[in-house]
Amino acid sequence: MFGKIRPQGSGPGIADSWHGGDDGENPLGPGAEGGALPVHTKQIGLWALLVTISMLFAGFTSAYLARRAAGEWTPIPLPRVLWLNTLILLASSATMEVARRTLRSWNLRALKRWLGITMVLGLAFLRGQFVAWKSLEQQGIFLPTNPHGSFFYLLTAVHGLHVLGGLIALGVVWFRAWRERYTPYHPAIGLCATYWHFMDLLWVYLFVLLFIL
């Protein structure tokens, strides 16, 4: 699998094909050579994406902290279902990790199974967040009612959309796994796992920020 990696810094004269073949051949991704970092190109792109998502939530966080410090702040009650949601999302990270490892042993069947479980857990998490919204509404806390509530709806909505994006990506990977497109060094599963764990951590962070700090 690593047969086609090129020596670095070697002189001219090595004929190079367009991009050095497909993803499976160059473990750093198409075209990565010369001064490339020892990381898959797509992984770098994903990290950059996670950095900018982090900045988005940093922006929300500073707004939240500033608003809370400004006074007139009545905390909303913690919807109980959030504990369950948190557990579900943590569990989904674990199953995602299992899925990732199954691929290492070329076990596509297990990969499909564990990806499926991860997706079901992800959907359950989203459903649970929705239940949390409903329970607040039943207590008369709507989006505009209270600053804490506004931030809760806002942050869960934005986070939920990002989880949804991750679910779509997982769906694509799952679909492709059916078509037996994966080899142990294919980057897609690793990328999904990184993103998924990040969403998981992000939720834990938001939970702590909104209800514990």
């Binding site: 670095q8 075209g31 010369g34 001064g35 490339a36 190109t41 792109g45």
Partner: peptide
């Protein structure tokens, strides 16, 4: 960012 980090040709430090 990704392109500049990873797609430089040989010798392009």
């Amino acid at each position: 960012v990704t392109t500049v980090l990873n797609l430089r040709t040989r010798g392009m430090s």
